[in-house]
């Protein structure tokens, strides 16, 4: 297969992913693997490229949640086929992040969306789910050697739990080593500053840029 044909398959993977067609993405990923295209290239120029466009369109309100969720399903379908091709522990990753909805809060739609976008951008995401205790955030980040903790809250009454995580990091002298980013409907940039979070993301697609920035520091 020549360069041009490879490019064409990868472009088609990205396109079908954006359409949320997981069967097509599966088929095309298999075709790309069979054509000996490097799995890392399939990941970057096919799946991640497609999710990147989905993220931008979602931010611009050109598409809505249903389209994102279907694209994510297609991304996972492709990812599952690629994973076995990477040598263990060498799955390419832009970095590790622990995410969750804070203690007392059961709203995980936004957090899940952030997870999808971060995975779609090539990050390794450890999702602790909802109602996550401050200790669990910090312990998991330490155990997994994650560089960033991402916290989400929808309820104004659960927001203070974010500060607890930052307090624990400070007490353990980990602030700066493990960065924090927060988001959710009632969260603002000024709240993030107030409690000493390293970053704030207005929405899921912006979280990707912000986490990239935190990882590089």
């Amino acid at each position: 297969m020549n360069q041009e044909e490879s490019m064409e398959i990868l472009g088609e993977i990205s396109k079908q992913l954006q359409l949320g067609d997981n069967e097509q993405v599966k088929e095309l990923t298999i075709k790309a693997i069979d054509a000996n295209i490097n799995p890392k290239i399939i990941l970057d120029n096919g799946l991640i490229a497609g999710m990147n466009i989905i993220g931008i369109q979602f931010r611009n309100h050109e598409i809505f949640l249903p389209e994102v969720l279907m694209a994510a399903k297609a991304m996972y379908a492709g990812l599952d086929l690629l994973k076995p091709l990477f040598i263990k522990d060498e799955i390419p990753s832009s970095g590790k992040i622990v995410i969750g909805t804070v203690k007392g809060d059961l709203h995980d739609l936004g957090k899940n969306l952030v997870g999808i976008m971060l995975k779609g951008a090539g990050f390794e995401v450890i999702d602790l789910g909802k109602d996550v205790s401050p200790e669990n955030f910090v312990d998991t980040a330490l155990k997994e050697n994650a560089k960033v903790i991402g916290m989400s809250a929808l309820l104004t009454t659960t927001m203070p739990s974010m500060k607890k995580v930052i307090d624990i990091l400070e007490t353990k002298n980990l602030k700066g080593k493990i960065k924090t980013i927060i988001g959710g409907a009632p969260i603002t940039e000024s709240y993030a500053k107030e409690i000493g979070a390293d970053s704030y993301a207005y929405d899921a697609s912006i979280s990707v840029e912000r986490v990239k920035y935190l990882m590089e520091l």
Partner: peptide
């Protein structure tokens, strides 16, 4: 309702 419960000292998380 939520803020009223909170003001009456009922903790979040429940």
């Amino acid at each position: 309702m939520g803020t009223m419960l909170f003001n009456k000292g009922l903790s979040s998380g429940n």
